[in-house]
């Protein structure tokens, strides 16, 4: 299983569980080629929570779907790059390994739990099936494990609830069952794609607390895909910011919040209404995200950037992700000039 493979490299104390390397994904639709993911690289370590934030169309979900082999090909096309799970390529051989690890060593939680569950079987049966199919348990033993798991995700009267069908459960309960399915086979990585977006805030808090608890217990890496910066502030160790198919900033969540090193991150943080600072006008980012079928040759954020001032380099040369310091990376040609603006965000101006 995953953990053994991990331990087989004793020289490296914390090798990344998952590595995404220069990933390029394109969707061909109606004669147009949309660049969904454009050269994204990051690594995730065991036990850490990496949040990927971005707005609609930024490529955050497509990246996650590629990891678990859920990008439809065609119309999707992975044109370049690789994804490696414990050193092995998930894309090689037509994505054979991706299909193999999906749901086992890489668990998934989606926004809509109802879609992840089969409406025709009781939740206990669906969980038990996982143990029967993958661990060869008998009917009885598998069901016992399922009940155990239902209890573990904080559902009272687990034995009774095991007989419920998905439609009999509330949204929060269904998401708990979906989480149970994701962690059933003790995965090394859990991918949660907007896991709480469809839930009410008090239930949201319960679900996030549960995910954090299970992650601490299992030592799995958690990739949290979200548009909610508040959720990131409360739960992520590291943060990757995506804009128009590209990774624009990567670093420890705290650092990125306090000293953002990309104009888009700065704009994003400033435009969120905060409860502690009260300004009459929110500093909104002007304009719209670019057309993914027609990305500019230079920096994709340049047309909306307050800092670029139409400098030739921003217009012509696509900025690579470069080191800000040991932990933080930025895809801005002029990140060094941003020190003043960071201070402003800090001061809450």
């Amino acid at each position: 299983m995953g953990r053994q493979l991990l331990n087989s490299r004793p020289n490296d104390p914390r090798p990344p569980v998952l590595v995404v390397e220069d990933l390029w994904i394109r969707f061909n639709a109606e004669g147009r080629a949309l660049q969904a993911v454009g050269g994204v690289s990051f690594a995730v370590e065991a036990g850490e929570t990496l949040a990927i934030v971005g707005e609609s169309g930024s490529g955050k979900s497509v990246t996650a779907h590629a990891i678990i082999g859920l990008v439809d090909i065609p119309p999707g096309e992975i044109t370049k790059g690789d994804i490696r799970f414990l050193g092995q390529s998930l894309l090689a051989d037509g994505g054979r390994l991706a299909r193999e690890v999906r749901g086992r060593e890489i668990g998934m939680v989606f926004q809509d739990a109802l879609a992840a569950l089969n409406p025709g079987f009781s939740v206990g049966y669906q969980l038990a099936e996982l143990f029967r199919a993958h661990q060869g348990l008998g009917k009885r033993a598998a069901l016992a494990r399922a009940v155990e798991l239902i209890d573990r995700v904080g559902i009272p009267n687990a034995r009774q609830r095991a007989g419920d069908y998905p439609h009999q459960l509330s949204g929060g309960m269904r998401q708990r069952i979906a989480i149970a399915m994701a962690i059933a086979l003790d995965p090394a990585v859990i991918i949660a794609d907007e896991p709480t977006t469809a839930l009410d805030v008090t239930v949201q808090a319960q679900i996030m607390e549960l995910l954090a608890k299970l992650q601490a217990e299992t030592g799995a890496a958690l990739i949290l895909i979200t548009h909610d910066l508040g959720l990131v502030a409360a739960h992520a160790d590291r943060l990757a910011v995506m804009y128009a198919s590209r990774l624009v900033e990567l670093g420890p969540a705290r650092t990125v919040f306090q000293r953002p090193s990309h104009p888009y991150t700065i704009g994003l943080l400033e435009s969120v209404p905060s409860r502690s600072r009260d300004a009459l006008e929110l500093p909104a980012i002007p304009g719209q995200p670019p057309d993914l079928a027609n990305l500019p040759p230079g920096c994709a954020f340049q047309p909306r950037c307050a800092h670029s001032r139409d400098r030739a380099r921003c217009l012509e040369e696509r900025p690579a992700l470069q080191r800000v310091d040991d932990q933080q990376q930025s895809a801005c040609h002029f990140f060094e000039e941003l020190a003043d603006r960071r201070q402003r965000v800090l001061a809450g101006a």
Partner: peptide, 24 residues
């Protein structure tokens, strides 16, 4: 409700102060 909603201000607050309501 105020404590349950994560806010970008939370990055400076201890997450342990959250009141997580039981039930729905």
């Amino acid at each position: 409700l105020l404590s349950a909603v994560p806010s970008i201000d939370d990055v400076d607050t201890a997450a342990g102060r959250r009141i997580v309501l039981a039930g729905e």
